[in-house]
């Protein structure tokens, strides 16, 4: 159990997908203007990351690798993620309309989110077991969630500021992302020593 907690904490704080590894920057900059959409988008990302890992890990381990087709990884994974997202959307719409109205809007946007594909590939590359992979996906998703919520709060303040003309809009947003990313450096080394 200790290993699982370490995996989650590392993924959330030390190797934060958005702020330390530059994955999923598009939604991070695009959907973080207001806290409502930011929460919905992040919840959908957590959900899809776990689901995508649960589908791609067994397929890679039990079908592609024994068949000697490990090189098909990229093609197979992106198709699997796209179909899983589509299936989830249809299922939610039919059986859980309330959840669909909260998350469904964001689901189609996630198909081409690089963070989802990255979590599936890195789970294979690091050699995680199935359980570890699921926890890593959960941690990565939560890390994305945390970064989005923090940044949505920061952006509502930026909107009220008056930066130099050329820095208005995206540049000042990126500079504040740099400062937020800097603050996450404080966590480096903490996790290893926490359970030592």
């Amino acid at each position: 159990m200790k290993e699982m907690i370490v995996i989650i904490l590392t993924a959330v704080f030390v190797n934060n997908y958005v702020l330390q590894q530059f994955l999923g920057i598009c939604p991070f900059l695009g959907v973080s203007k207001k806290i409502g959409p930011a929460t919905g988008m992040s919840a959908a990302v957590v959900f899809v990351m776990i689901l995508a890992t649960a589908v791609t890990w067994p397929i890679q381990t039990f079908i592609l690798e024994p068949a000697g087709m490990g090189y098909m990884q990229t093609v197979v994974f992106i198709l699997l993620i796209a179909s899983v997202v589509q299936l989830v959307e249809i299922t939610l719409k039919r059986y859980m309309p309330s959840l669909h109205s909260a998350l469904g809007v964001y689901l189609p946007l996630i198909t081409t989110n690089c963070a989802v594909l990255a979590v599936c590939i890195s789970n294979i590359d690091t050699g995680f077991t199935f359980l570890e992979a699921i926890f890593n996906a959960l941690g990565s998703g939560l890390g994305f969630f945390l970064a989005m919520i923090l940044f949505a709060g920061i952006r509502s303040r930026i909107e009220e500021c008056d930066p130099p003309e050329s820095f208005k809009g995206l540049p000042i947003t990126l500079v504040s992302a740099a400062i937020l990313s800097l603050s996450f450096f404080g966590f480096a080394g903490v996790i290893e020593n926490l359970f030592a």
Binding site: F22, P171, T173, L174
Partner: peptide
């Protein structure tokens, strides 16, 4: 490192 990336990119766009 990561913060430098965000910072330089922001400055370049500006």
């Amino acid at each position: 490192m990561a913060p430098g990336g965000f910072f330089v990119f922001g400055c370049l766009i500006a």
